[in-house]
Design a protein around this nucleic acid. Structure first.
Lengths: 120, 120
DNA sequence: CTGTATCCGACACGATACTG
DNA sequence: CAGTATCGTGTCGGATACAG
């Protein structure tokens, strides 16, 4: 944004408004990061994300799958095996996610300090 | 993340978990971008964000203020004048926000196409 | 101009129990 | 192993009206 601010800066078609579509999700970014180095099974995702329930993890994965970020491959075996893998499109999320992680690492302490001062 | 995935990848103290604190907010990013080039008054923020109500914009600004991203300066005049300005800390958000905007510009069409295919 | 005060609906998230 | 089914809760965003 180096242009002057127009009166209709808020345009539903503006790509920026899509940020929350994927980044705003609570567990989505974590799944993407976990899948960075290769496909993982449902349980392999769930274990490190200890606070997530099966239901919510399933919802998160379906959402990522719907948006073309992740593929789901089920193998007809007993016991069942399902693998989740990043698509090329999903891989493009790694950049912005890393930018957010770097920001948090550098600036979260300052944020928390400001918040503590405001609250207390 | 180039390290092996630990079993306790989910750590509440992990800075990454703070991403939604600021970026996940619906209007927060927009306010930061609008303030990039200098302080603005309440109405000057509200006008371009046409879909936002006074209540929600106020909540957003209070939240940014609480986290030390924005300062609020009220002038004892009639009619009242209030100016909002980015802090140095708030300015650090511009990087990750821009990364998300760039991502959306480049990849939102592919996302929507995938979604349409999944839904239809 | 810069907000507050209510009320409300939607939805994300979670707890718990159960299944092929 | 990889989910589904139900139910409950809280929070966010929005509509509307009003105020200093």
């Amino acid at each position: 944004m180096t242009q002057p601010i127009p009166d209709d800066f808020f345009d539903p078609a503006c790509p920026s408004s899509a940020m929350p579509i994927r980044v705003g999700e609570k567990w989505g970014g974590m799944v993407v990061v976990l899948l960075e180095k290769g496909p993982l099974r449902f349980t392999e995702l769930k274990r490190p994300m200890r606070a997530v329930t099966s239901k919510v993890l399933t919802e998160t994965l379906r959402s990522l799958e719907r948006d073309g970020m992740v593929t789901r491959t089920a193998y007809a075996e007993v016991p069942p095996r399902v693998e989740y893998e990043l698509t090329d499109l999903g891989r493009t999320l790694l950049g912005p996610i890393q930018a957010c992680r770097d920001w948090a690492t550098a600036n979260l302490p300052a944020l928390l300090e400001a918040r503590a001062g405001w609250d207390g």
